[in-house]
Design a protein around this nucleic acid. Structure first.
Lengths: 187, 187
DNA sequence: ATTCGAATTGACTAATCAGTCGGTAAAGCT
DNA sequence: AGCTTTACCGACTGATTAGTCAATTCGAAT
């Protein structure tokens, strides 16, 4: 009898990615997870609580992944390169989490909570952006525009890589991709 | 009297943006539109057909908007500038359509259809991108990456403008925003 | 061994949903 | 005018849903 709670979360993630939140009944999650519906509602008071838990958990490990090895780097560009590689590598190796995150971000029914917390995903990047602007390395534009554009560009590159995962090992390719990301930012 | 169909579509768009597809019952759409449920299902065989109709309609007017005045421009950069301004102006003046489009694109339950058609949204841009690559004006990278990144960057900028609509009239600001978009692409 | 809370079960329910159907009113056509 | 098609209505249905609950098992501490 291993952790049923964890089993529920993993199954829910998979099914949410396949069917979406609303099109995935709790009964289906329970069945697929090999658990009674009562067990599901024992661990999560409501379906929404299950979804939110999944989101917060995903966000946590994403932030951990993005931050890796960044502080050790010297130049600002190197730091951005590190974050960039962290981001694309994470997406490739956790496709379900990545899809779930996108799906959650664009779903309207939790939008208020999300849009506030959503920015925190790029808190690391935000700090780097500010640092770069203060040192006149990056474009002198409103920080909000900088953040949204950086996020959008990164999402676009990530989307492409998700459908061409083999490219992740092509050093020349990934460096080209990074140069797009960098060119958006640099002044 | 012929407007009931249109009334249903408009009401559905509004409610879908507010609640999401699945969280918006057909009964709610009918009620809000001042129409019987039978009427709704007379015009649209299923709920999914209603959603798809809304998507196709939205796509159509978006494409029209993006293409405006593009051919008249002389240089490639001017053409991109025109598309860029068309895109952000459309988003600002049709926020519900814009939200609906994003929501639809990221929802998994119609994903296969969407991901194929989704690219068509940027068919205009695709042609321009190819032209730019052939003339060594743009980055020499896989066209797919170019498309996804351009779309991502544009989406990011659009997202920012949606929350700061007043900036659309700031000529200096929008030109800065365009320079980010252009820097992603240019070689 | 006994106790007690937490974990687990699955039949159950009240609510809600997409879609139907039989019928009425209005347009369109000849 | 008559005749046909299309638009419209709203009560109804069968299926499905999130969430409940009384009963049972598990696990660990006393």
């Amino acid at each position: 009898m291993k952790d049923k709670r964890q089993q529920i979360l993993e199954t829910a993630l998979k099914l949410f990615v396949e069917n979406g939140f609303h099109a995935t009944p709790t009964s289906m999650i329970a069945k697929e997870a090999g658990v009674a519906t009562g067990t599901l509602f024992h661990h999560f008071k409501t379906k929404e609580e299950l979804i939110n838990t999944l989101y917060l958990e995903t966000k946590e490990i994403l932030i951990q992944a993005l931050t890796k090895q960044v502080n050790e780097q010297d130049t600002l560009k190197s730091k951005f390169r590190q974050v960039f590689y962290n981001a694309i590598n994470w997406a490739i190796s956790h496709p379900d989490h990545q899809f779930f995150y996108s799906q959650y971000s664009y779903s309207p029914f939790i939008s208020t909570l999300t849009r506030e917390l959503g920015l925190q995903r790029f808190h690391v990047i935000q700090e780097l952006l500010k640092e770069g602007q203060e040192n006149d390395i990056l474009k002198a534009i409103p920080i909000g525009l900088m953040i949204d554009t950086a996020q959008g560009t990164l999402d676009g590159i990530t989307n492409y890589l998700m459908e061409h995962p083999e490219k992740i090992d092509d050093r020349e390719f990934t460096e080209q991709a990074f140069s797009m990301f960098w060119d958006v930012l640099k002044g």
